[in-house]
Simulated assay, not measured.
Amino acid sequence: MTTPPKTPPGFAELPALFWPAAAGAAASAAWLGALQREFGFAAAAAGMMARPPPDWASPNRVALDLETMLLRDFSATEARGDAVPVLIAAPHAGNSPVLVDLATGQSLVQVLLAGGLQRVLVTDWKSASAPMRDLGIDSYLADLNAAVDDLGGAVNLVGICQGGWMSAMYAACFPHKVCTLVLAGAPIDLSAGQGKPGMLAHALPLEVYRQLVGWGQGRMSGRYLMESWKSLNPGHYLGRMLELHREFAAEGDLSRSDAFQRWCDAALDLPGRFYLQVIEQLFQQNLLAEGRFTALGCTLSLADVTCPAYLLAGEADAIAPAPQVLAAAALLGTPAAEIVQQTLPTDHLGLFIGAPALQQTWPAIARWIADKGGAGA
């Protein structure tokens, strides 16, 4: 058994300090106290330097105002009503969902619309307020279902990052409402690859995560999540930032670089119950992949999902490694001939805002959705 060091460390040293929950209570308390101070300092510093969050780049309207999200409709007025809608379940891990419509020329929404999809909508997740602290995964799935019903009861579902496992859950719970399912950078089988979030979830006792939620008065601070990830991955974070800024500048559009920086500074708080369910039941226990996750009163099985599916993964993705994403092919009930698996030579963010993915891969996905899901003109 390992024990925490006698001198509580700084947060940046966290990866070397994992220890079992059985470590002494006093040592654990001291370590958590140091962690709280580091978190508080990082969050306060980031808050002082943060700029206003980026706006949505494309015209849209709020089609529905629900407890967990605003449903944003980016469709042209004349397109609303005929084609099967495309619903993007945006990332929801402490980041702003604006990532999918970051800037003109750097927008997944715009690519899908230009690719012939008539109706495109996005889940604009709300930052958790104090009254939202007890909302769990069920609340998010229920609101997703309310959005689908409002759209006519059938959608083409595009799950991005953490919105991906949520999309997979929804498709397993309501298979008759999902015409096609796209999972991009979505962790589905946590036993299939070594992603950093999963490794961290296993390395720390659940009590640490409960304490973090306690510090947030029942919520998980999005600022804590953002700053902790930067601290744990300083080299990758800074390197990727420079790469994207260089890419944007080379294309002569510094506004995209500014929008990306403002997205990096933006943060959304998560309901504490939701966050702890994700850590324990998904990342630690892998219940979704094992067919043991219970949602909305049902035990979900991905084998119940039989619609055409498109799985998109990044070779250098440390958040949702390719094996975690592509493992869905063996878990879904969709016939193998109706499952597309594609891996790109990029990292996590490159799947959604990288120029090669937006210029080459996503237009092809748009055509696939139009063909398989009746979403085109």
Rank of each mutant, 00 (worst) to 15 (best):
G10S: 13
E13L: 14
A22S: 15
A22V: 09
A23I: 01
L32S: 06
L35Q: 13
Q36L: 10
R37S: 14
A42P: 01
A44K: 13
G47D: 09
P53M: 03
P59C: 02
V62F: 10
A63C: 06
E67I: 08
L71P: 07
L71R: 09
P85C: 08
A89P: 02
A93C: 11
A93D: 15
V100D: 00
Q106G: 07
G115E: 06
L117P: 01
V120W: 05
L121T: 05
L121P: 00
D124R: 00
A130V: 00
P131S: 00
I137P: 00
S139E: 13
D149P: 00
L151K: 04
L151G: 04
G153N: 05
G159D: 03
I160K: 03
M166D: 03
M169F: 13
C173P: 01
C173Y: 15
G185I: 04
A186M: 07
L190I: 13
L190V: 14
S191R: 08
Q194Y: 14
G195Q: 13
P197W: 15
A201E: 13
M220C: 12
M220N: 11
S221V: 03
S221D: 08
G222F: 06
E227N: 07
E227A: 05
W229H: 10
H236F: 11
H236M: 12
H236E: 12
F248T: 11
D258Y: 03
R262N: 10
C264E: 15
C264K: 07
L268W: 11
D269N: 10
L270V: 04
L282S: 08
F293N: 00
G297A: 09
C298H: 15
T299I: 08
Y310R: 10
L312I: 15
D317M: 12
L326T: 10
L332W: 05
P335I: 06
A337H: 07
E338K: 11
Q342A: 15
T346V: 11
D347W: 08
L349E: 10
L351G: 03
G354Y: 05
A357M: 07
A366I: 05
R367N: 09
K372A: 11
